[in-house]
Design a protein around this nucleic acid. Structure first.
Lengths: 163, 163
DNA sequence: CGTAATATCTCGTTCAGCGAGATTATCGCC
DNA sequence: GGCGATAATCTCGCTGAACGAGATATTACG
């Protein structure tokens, strides 16, 4: 599977078929994006995990899911102790607030503070604008092609996640 | 910028314009991919950084760049001590070998051992195959659209990386 | 009402990554 | 051809992120 038997390519492993090169390209994008996250984290006295936590909380908000501490830990792959630590750090920086759920008083709901949102927009805004400009240069059917590809790729990655 | 003034959407922040939804989709893919990396790491007694290191070394190999310890540390954003630690771990697991460069005997060249490649293929092979199947269902012009999008997006993320 | 299940937190430990500095090898200069 | 400057990697000691185990508080079930 994916063997490269033809010699003479750029790397010692031989030439890559065209579609596989596209897969590498997708992976390269994810790597670059991760580096930007790490940069944002370092610049604001946070750790990559904290940034991922904020993104996760904003996603939950966008999806109208209750942003509980437990959900956060599960999404980040942390145990309960680690989850508490992340929230402690974000709370200390004033980026999230702990709110007891009145329906189920065992739960802690997390609210992302406006300052954190503003911070994120300042940093990621230009990057988002850049991608939006790219998308604006595509016509609607091309955008639909991109959407189908990303959706399908995500479905591939999301399938069968082991506990 | 990117404000959502229209109420009544799914999340408390309102509805997202269509293209912005595509940006979120791209980010979601990067997040899912990162989770898979972490899963691969945990399953093989490694840390996410170690996996990223292996990927980096294979990329360097593919690009016919010399895979030195220094380059690795720079790409991963680690200092020299951390870089040594990563290589120590990978060497202890038998995934890479340290090789003194005969041209410049200060340098250490890193070779990824076949066992590590095999391990990676076992885990990521099905995922790669899945994406390849998606791409096979696209016609050449659609694949070109995807390629243009990913290349442009990467250019956006790669521009102005701060030290 | 008691017992089980659920959600979060506390405590102690491990080890990844950092800063500072040591070590070894190469290069440029005269 | 030796000598300081530069470069690549490694060693040491330390901080703190994340883990496992278990405590605490709240709700659901019978």
């Amino acid at each position: 599977m994916h063997d490269n038997h033809e010699p003479g390519g750029p790397g010692p492993l031989g030439r890559e078929p065209d579609n596989l090169q596209l897969v590498h390209l997708l992976r390269a994008v994810t790597v670059d994006f991760g580096l930007r996250q790490a940069e944002f984290a370092a610049r604001n006295g946070m750790h990559p995990t904290d940034v991922r936590a904020l993104i996760c909380l904003l996603d939950a908000d966008r999806a109208a899911e209750p942003a509980t501490a437990g959900l956060l830990g599960a999404r980040l792959g942390l145990n309960s102790a680690g989850t508490t630590a992340v929230i402690d750090r974000l709370e200390r920086l004033g980026h999230v607030a702990r709110i007891r759920d009145d329906q189920d008083r065992r739960r802690i709901l997390l609210r992302v503070e406006p300052g954190a949102v503003r911070l994120g927009r300042e940093f990621f805004g230009p990057l988002i604008d850049g991608v939006l400009r790219v998308l604006d240069s595509f016509d609607p059917s091309e955008r639909d092609t991109v959407r189908r590809f990303l959706t399908s790729a995500r479905a591939v990655f999301a399938s069968e996640p082991r506990p």
